[in-house]
Every structure is written in C-alpha cells, then in structure tokens.
Simulated assay, not measured.
Amino acid sequence: MANRFYKSVSTREISGRFHVLLDERVLKTPGKMAFCLPTELLAKAVAKEWDAQTDKIEPAKMPVTRLLNVALEQTPSRRPELLEEAKRYTSTDLLCYRAPEPRILVERQSEGWDGWLAWAKSRGVDLVSTQSLIATVQPESAYDSIAAYAEGLDDIRLTLFMHFTAVFGSVVLAMAVIEKALTAGEAFDLSRLDILYQNELWGEDEEAAEIARDLRNETVSLGTVLDLL
C-alpha cells in the first residue's frame, strides 16, 4: 500500500468527459491511460473513494476505481476473449444445476431460480437444468444469445457483466442485474442459496462469513455504477 500523496480530490469536465483530479493532477489508470468517464456522477463516485483514503491508499477499499481501471484499460482490447468467456459460463450457470435432495433445498432452488430461468428464456437465453454434477451442453442458441448480449454492452457494462457472472456463477443473474431486473445484493443472495442452506445445517464459519460479507458489500457497491452511467 502506498502512502496518500495528495490533499484534495475533485472532478472536472474536459472535452465532454469527466475526470478525477488529485491536487489538480488528472488521475490515470495504472497503465497511464487517461481515467476519463462518461458521467459526472461516476467521476464523483471515484473521487469519493480516493477522498476516503487515510494515511495509506488501500485499493481493496476502492471497488469502483478498480473496476473502472479494468474497463478503461483492458476490456476494449479483450472483448473477443470476454465474449468467449461468457459463453463458457453459460454451460455452468449456477441456476441450471439442481440438488436431487433434500426436499427443502430442492424447493428453495426452484422457488428462487425457476423464475429467473424463465426471465432469461423470454430474452432468448433458453437454458436447461439438470441434477447432474457434470456440465451439461446447452442449446447453441443460448450461447449465441449470451455472446450477442455481451457484445452489445459498452466497455463499463461488459466489465460489470463479466465481474458479476464470476461472483454469482451465473450469466442469468448477471444479466438481470445489468438490466436492473435484480439488484446486485438480491442476485448475490440468490447465488448463495446452497451455502445458506448448509450454514443452517452445520453453522457458519466466522472467517468465511466475514469474507462473504465483504464480497457482498463490494458487489452492492459495484451495482451502484449502473445508476451512475
């Protein structure tokens, strides 16, 4: 962690884009690219993270800044790779893999997930579910639909989509968040139905619970980016 090297944080519009300034010096990405954003609200959210740093700069406490660094610096050149990654996740979407037992978990999965598979189907992503642990082959149309959806997202939304997909283990839940059909917090909770059930049975490990809380808080913070675009 580096020491805080600046006193003031502000934002400024330059040529129709919004920048964050540290002591009047324009913030750049780690690769020295211009950290320029499409909206003032988004720039202010980044500025708030930098202003909240104390003696040390802690990147772990700046999720919006970290995500936007990726969106600005890496996503534009990695789009084809990310589309293929989205298609791979389609084969292993969490919502498609169901427990054969016990009944209470089967019912919770059905209640929590069936509606979102139906929602995805209405948008051209028709996935089949299974009780097998082996990855199932989904209809080719589902892969194509997910790839087309991801391709249509701008760099920031695509970065968010791929991040949420990894966190939730589900392209469907990630798509629902991007489309604002679910909040990031709601999707996170739905993705943990199995874990929550196991915690009820055996109790919750304190360290694991703390990690989960931190991840949920970060996920909720990143969900706010959608409202700032």
Rank of each mutant, 00 (worst) to 15 (best):
F161N: 04
L158W: 04
E207V: 13
D51N: 15
E49L: 10
P139G: 02
K48G: 14
E40N: 13
T136E: 02
M62F: 02
K121V: 00
D93W: 04
N69F: 14
L229I: 11
M1I: 06
K44A: 13
E111G: 11
L222K: 14
E107M: 06
M162K: 07
L173Q: 09
L229H: 11
A166P: 00
L42A: 09
T92I: 15
E24Y: 07
E207A: 13
L27R: 00
C96S: 15
L127M: 12
L42P: 10
L95N: 12
P100D: 13
L182T: 04
T39Q: 11
D144E: 14
Q138A: 05
F168P: 04
K7H: 11
R157V: 06
T90M: 05
E49I: 13
Y89D: 03
W113T: 09
L68T: 03
S15D: 15
L158S: 07
K48D: 10
T92C: 11
D23E: 08
L42I: 13
V128P: 02
D227I: 07
T136S: 13
L229D: 12
G124Y: 01
Q198E: 15
W202K: 02
A2N: 15
L160W: 02
T92S: 14
L117E: 09
I156D: 07
D126P: 03
D93I: 10
E58A: 08
N3G: 09
S110F: 11
A184G: 09
G31W: 07
T11M: 03
R108C: 02
D154A: 09
S15L: 10
Q109I: 02
Q138F: 07
E73V: 00
L105T: 05
R98H: 03
L133H: 09
W113S: 09
R4A: 05
S191C: 01
F5N: 04
R103W: 12
P139T: 03
E85F: 10
T183E: 10
N3Y: 15
E107G: 01
Q53P: 04
L201D: 00
M1Q: 08
V20Q: 08
V20T: 06
Y97Q: 06
W119K: 07
P80R: 06
L158F: 01
L173W: 12
L182C: 06
